[in-house]
Design a protein around this nucleic acid. Structure first.
Lengths: 390, 390
DNA sequence: TTGTAAGCGTTATCAA
DNA sequence: TTGATAACGCTTACAA
């Protein structure tokens, strides 16, 4: 190593360029370029020599130069639009990102990750990245029911894949999925056949962008199967943000499943929250204080589920005897509570890998597609059981 | 907007360049460059005109071109070396990143964020980024007691700031801070005066890199003050990974504080873990099963604290009557348990802002410095109280 | 199979 | 105060 401190700082080692390699290998720069990029037009012998020299020198292509001449920036972008406070306890994103990078790092592609306050800032950032040519494409997360992003990205010509989509499904014949907001009450029961819903979820392709998604409808059906099978008839789904596409899908699915079993929409229903422990707890309190409280609650994330379990404990309501609890998404959280929480487990890093692969496929000129991730499975733990007779 | 679908994808809008601006404003390219970069050598009039045209065209500098000619890539890097499984419930990093980006986005600087498996991969990535000229500098997190990164980065001449440092403090006269691993027992009591320790923590500057850090020693002292004041005399610190610099500082501080109060090192001590809920729970079980269990436990993160509280509940040990619990780092987790957990609260986004500012200062040619973040404060909740008499 | 040369969009150095 | 012009490191026609 060089001398420490200031010295090292002032005189950074020079990075080798293609010219250095050319000189050292006794060939032209273009030959080097061809050799290193696996292009025809250079002999096996030369190719090998160039490769060896490059290795010796520890050469790596200058990403700026490559981006400037070739079209590729060698980087993809991912923006997370969340108010700073909402950046709570969420293993989801870190795991998603780690899966994405497993795929990207093998191809030497960098990921620009940015956390912003809101959707407007996110859109502005896409425009900037596009104008700056900073990224070759982006992964769009948290798709919404009304989402301006696909149209913007398509207009810019910035390749993108919607993760968790479809962002804006076609017009819903029965109107948008709605749930009572926490404050209000009662939602008019808009019946729809299971077949209708299934068809919808089978062809959710967004016309503008490729999409990778999980079948929340089927997952919700599994949860319902589990709870209904145990004997539950009063089931409430404490959902996340109402504007998100997957929230809408889950709500719609719950309704479909209720209809299929002839359950009343007053007994089986969804309420929306902001995903925070505070709103999760608040919604739970309201439900438990009602005249006929639910015997089972499904929470849209782990944090709310734990908060809900805590409320039950505070009320002296025993889980699972008097109340069953299911968490959508598993994490350490679900395993440290007492009792441990039954959870819907999905392979989040795997989902990230899928998304990255799909974006790379789009960059390579592949067709727009809709790819479905693995169906989550229900990990039954101690928080769900048959409801106590009353 | 242009026509949707394939059309938009095939014919992406052209990005305006400096040449377009020059043509349209009727000046030379270099005049445009000067005007847009606030350099002297162009009249007020021209400058205004150029600016207006650039605005109209929605021009943004092509980051690759700028990186190629100027020295700057306009991006910083942050690598998180964590085995994928350990990417658990941690709000810390997302919050840190959000703070960092508050500072960077104001200066239009992007952040390359990468999650890797281990330190070796992290170092390889620094080398690659450096060779590719991908980043202008990096933020080094999770500094260790024996850390190869500062030397590597200094040798490469890649500007960096250690976040949470100092990474490798000067040789400790009393030997490295050690704690009994969970499996073993007893550590030889290596006494050291409080003054000595204070001096050490007052001048932790790493000779190679700038550092922003939090005074874990003082924070630990605060925790001890709290618990000792309540009457606790048997206090165990369930620490995180033994190799991390801040773990060492906390362990050392605990010992110093014990000595200062004449407490036995068998009664007040640290054990190390991997931060996981599993090891946190396991360590807690071991402690509670001992002949003379501690009356208070300090956990190095929120997940372990919650896991520990859960173990206590499982054992029928009442918190805080029979056991007091403190969590290092607050989060929603600490507020959803029953009782809510007393926690050491710090401003993580603020810490991120500080780190980003410091790195920018280094990039601007500022001197190597050691900057101290805000001291965490203890948020006393229901999990700490006077120990029950026995 | 090889080398020469133009170009990518900036910044920076010169003369004018 | 301006406008050519040469880098920066790479890719890629095109010519030898």
């Amino acid at each position: 190593m060089t001398a420490p401190g200031e010295a090292a700082r002032r005189k950074p080692a020079r990075r080798p360029t293609i010219k250095d390699i050319a000189r050292r290998a006794g060939v032209s720069e273009s030959a080097v370029s061809f050799a290193l990029n696996d292009r025809p037009g250079v002999s096996q012998d030369t190719r090998a020599r160039v490769r060896r020299v490059a290795e010796e020198l520890g050469w790596q292509a200058n990403s700026a130069a490559r981006a400037l001449s070739g079209e590729r920036a060698g980087a993809l972008g991912l923006v997370l639009a969340r108010p700073a406070q909402t950046l709570g306890v969420e293993s989801f994103f870190l795991q998603l990102v780690s899966g994405i990078q497993e795929v990207l790092s093998a191809r030497q592609i960098a990921l620009l990750f940015q956390v912003v306050e809101d959707l407007g800032t996110e859109c502005a950032l896409y425009r900037r990245w596009w104008a700056e040519r900073r990224v070759d494409g982006v992964l769009v997360v948290d798709p919404r029911t009304e989402d301006p992003r696909p149209e913007l990205l398509a207009a810019l010509g910035l390749p993108a894949v919607v993760v968790g989509g479809p962002a804006t499904p076609g017009p819903d014949p029965s109107g948008p999925a709605t749930a009572e907001p926490t404050a209000k009450s009662a939602a008019e029961p808009t019946a729809k056949s299971a077949a209708e819903s299934a068809a919808e979820s089978a062809a959710p392709a967004h016309p503008l962008l490729s999409t990778v998604w999980a079948d929340d409808a089927k997952a919700m059906a599994r949860v319902l199967d589990h709870l209904y099978g145990l004997g539950h008839r009063r089931i409430v789904h404490i959902a996340g943000l109402p504007g998100l596409a997957h929230t809408a899908r889950r709500i719609r699915s719950l309704r479909t499943e209720a209809d299929r079993r002839g359950l009343d929409h007053r007994q089986v229903r969804s309420v929306t929250t902001d995903y925070s422990d505070a709103e999760g707890a608040e919604a739970t309190r309201r439900l438990l204080d009602a005249a006929r409280p639910p015997t089972a609650i499904v929470y849209d994330n782990d944090v709310m589920a734990v908060a809900g379990a805590s409320v039950a404990a505070e009320r002296g309501i025993s889980v699972p005897d008097a109340l069953s609890i299911v968490a959508w998404d598993d994490s350490a959280l679900c395993r440290v509570t007492h009792p441990r929480l039954t959870a819907l487990v999905r392979d989040t890093p795997g989902f990230g890998r899928l998304a990255a692969q799909e974006l790379l496929a789009v960059l390579d000129g592949g067709p727009l597609r809709t790819v479905q991730g693995e169906l989550p499975h229900l990990e039954a733990r101690e928080s769900t059981a048959a409801p106590s007779p009353r």
